[in-house]
């Protein structure tokens, strides 16, 4: 039976691996912080907050202060809101105010608070074949893109950015389709890469573009129209509507996101790397945006 020995060795090693796997897998230090009743807190958020690195800065501070283990699930805003409507998340940080209001009206989320904004910009090839740089409003810019058919990449993933873009086309009564309108079905980073490779235009949030600028052949060609503001809200999933919601943790996270110290960190985030902030803190300024 000596030939079996190799299998036996194999099994032994895998058993050891399994036993090791049963050990603790987290390495976050929770010393000195209070131990909450339910530890896991599921934060459903958009890819832009994770890809920009902002959450990597904020989440450890929150965990340190409160003792929760935050499970950040970065998806498009559409899916994040869907997770709320299914009761599969505890707290949300998303950027599609119109869609958020619908979910709020349905009673799926409560305690919705303004956190910060940055803005959407139109980027494209440096030679700007459509001539966006001479245009004044976002409406003009989108109409020019539609008429020139020179190439536009859409996220097509029901994210906040996608909702913003589709909303603008709809407001203008335009239905973009054809070869020039490329549906990427991807996150912001992939969409920017596709636009860069194809020499096409796309709508992006400023943060992701700045973070990736060095790897792209894209320039900012239109910016500054107030309708292109990208506004982030935090909100908790309604614990009275769904079971197993970590309501205390969610409320703590909402409070944390609008706290003065957190707002200060948000305002400074990215300055050291890009020379300018990626997000502008807005807590308590609900009146300014008429939301």
């Amino acid at each position: 039976m000596r030939g079996i020995r190799s299998l036996t060795i194999l099994l032994t090693v895998f058993v050891i691996v399994t036993l090791a796997a049963c050990g603790p897998t987290t390495e976050t230090s929770e010393e000195g912080s209070p131990e909450p009743e339910i530890k896991d807190l599921i934060l459903s958020t958009t890819t832009s907050t994770q890809d920009s690195g902002l959450l990597d800065e904020l989440i450890p501070i929150f965990e340190e202060q409160t003792g929760y283990l935050v499970k950040t699930i970065a998806v498009g805003t559409g899916k994040a809101l869907e997770m709320a409507s299914l009761g599969e998340a505890d707290v949300l940080l998303v950027h599609a105010p119109e869609a958020e209001k619908e979910v709020e009206a349905a009673g799926d989320v409560i305690n919705r608070k303004l956190v910060m904004h940055n803005d959407f910009i139109l980027v494209g090839p440096a030679n700007d074949p459509v001539g966006l740089q001479e245009l004044e409003t976002a409406s003009e810019a989108f109409e020019a893109l539609f008429e020139n058919e020179s190439g536009f990449v859409t996220r097509g993933d029901d994210s906040g950015t996608d909702k913003m873009e589709k909303g603008i086309w709809a407001d203008l009564g335009l239905k973009p389709n054809g070869d020039w309108y490329i549906d990427a079905g991807s996150g912001m980073a992939d969409t920017l890469k596709i636009a860069s490779e194809k020499g096409a235009y796309t709508l992006t949030d400023r943060g992701t573009y700045l973070a990736l600028r060095d790897t792209l052949d894209l320039e900012i060609l239109f910016e500054g129209d107030p309708i292109l503001l990208n506004i982030y809200h935090v909100m908790q999933v309604n614990p009275e509507k769904f079971e197993h919601i970590n309501a205390e943790g969610a409320a703590a996270f909402v409070d944390f996101m609008v706290a003065a110290e957190t707002q200060e960190i948000i305002g400074e985030f990215g300055v050291d790397k890009f020379g300018l902030p990626l997000f502008f803190p807005d807590a308590g300024k609900e009146d300014q945006y008429d939301l």
């Binding site: 897998t25 987290t26 390495e27 990597d56 283990l69 499970k71 950040t72 970065a74």
Partner: peptide
């Protein structure tokens, strides 16, 4: 798994 940092 959710790609949770330090965890999954």
């Amino acid at each position: 798994g959710g790609n949770v940092r330090w965890y999954s």
